[in-house]
Write a protein that binds this DNA or RNA. Structure first.
Lengths: 215, 215
DNA sequence: TATAACGTGAACACCACTGTTCGACTTAGC
DNA sequence: GCTAAGTCGAACAGTGGTGTTCACGTTATA
């Protein structure tokens, strides 16, 4: 599903929430959100002037569409999450839970890697509740997968689902950090994450699955 | 080992690097570093005015001892790490690697939890290299333990030591976040972390150890 | 083509923090 | 008790971002 520009601006209380926007206005908003994602991805402290410049738009124009810095960050984050959801929609989570989780990681860690710096910006500007709300989509996906894996005896049941999901995200994020620091290469990341998480999810008393680099 | 005030100020290029400091000056510095740790722990964006006020000291006095905000943050972080090292010194890392790791987690996750916000402040103000340098002490401890565990066949060897250490820290940090968000209680944290990490460290093909809440 | 919406740069006020200087006062240490 | 070191508040200048207004030029759309 595409990012709904009008719907977004309406729900955030920007000017002209109901009035139909002109085509060039929509183009400007699109450019700003895209530039914000890029700039904040590079530097979480990027100023609105910088974002406007990157969008090829005047600073005043930015303020005409977004009431505050928080709104810009929110829009950029929403966009990134929506894009991520589109990608995750293409991942087959049926069948063997272990293989499904491996497929999810293969697709998901890259998204986490790309949105890492953007998330830092969001954490500074947005409330924890809002960030959690934005992640509801991806979170529900993993929760359902983990729940199914537990029901089928593939994943451990001695720890809460929320904790397992949390561990998955923590490991993916830390892998992104390691890559940024040059201590891990991108091509090995998915294997390492998968091997680690599958082991962490294994029920006590059960042998850890052999991933052998091939998923 | 106690935090060496003179040594620290010397190596950071503050004024009077060689001259002996008066007792009241040392007291001021101590109060500032302590207040910085508290304030930055509460709010990573705490201003120097706020820190000086909390230390019961004039803002000018703070600048008399620390040339910049970065120096204050560095001092607070160094202090926290030193304190942590003192605690970790009391942990017995000999014997069964699994039990040793459990003991390390029991002592270490609490330190991570307390220094969480302080670390955020450090990440904004200090270079990644400096932060890594500060963590060299604790990191070496875990690396040695993991290396021994691998040699004894208790931990997996199909993933790099650095990655395993990284996973341990990532899980501890995420547990701290969960507690702060109210989704995990402090009394369960150590069990969850231990169960997760021991499983993640288990060699492929080997059964995951049963922790059973008792370590 | 009329007009309302949009885009624009320049300028403004505002704010919070940083880092420095000054002169006067207090205190530690020999 | 003398002196140098330390402390203090007030006030300063500088910085960089935020959010707003204005007057004017441009463009989409009916």
């Amino acid at each position: 599903m595409l990012y709904d520009l009008l719907g977004y601006c309406g729900c955030m209380g920007s000017k002209n929430s109901t009035a139909a926007k002109r085509a060039d206005a929509l183009r400007s908003i699109e450019a700003i959100v895209q530039a914000a994602a890029e700039c904040l991805g590079r530097n979480p402290e990027a100023s609105l002037s910088e974002i406007a410049r990157a969008a090829g738009v005047g600073r005043v124009t930015l303020y005409a569409h977004f009431a505050s810095r928080a709104e810009v960050v929110d829009a950029a984050m929403s966009r990134a999450i929506d894009r991520g959801n589109d990608v995750l929609d293409t991942v087959d989570l049926a069948g063997d839970p272990l293989l499904a989780l491996a497929r999810y990681i293969e697709a998901g860690w890259h998204l986490v890697d790309q949105a890492r710096a953007l998330l830092v910006a969001a954490q500074r500007e947005l409330s924890a509740g809002r960030i959690r709300e934005l992640h509801a989509g991806p979170a529900a996906r993993v929760e359902a997968l983990v729940a199914r894996g537990r029901a089928e005896g593939a994943f451990r049941t001695d720890l809460p689902i929320a904790w397992l999901v949390n561990v998955l995200h923590a490991v993916m994020h830390s892998a992104a950090e390691e890559i940024r620091a040059g201590r891990l290469t991108s091509d090995r990341a998915a294997d390492h994450i998968t091997a680690t998480v599958l082991a962490a999810f294994t029920p006590p008393g059960t042998p850890v699955p052999e991933t052998g680099g091939g998923a």
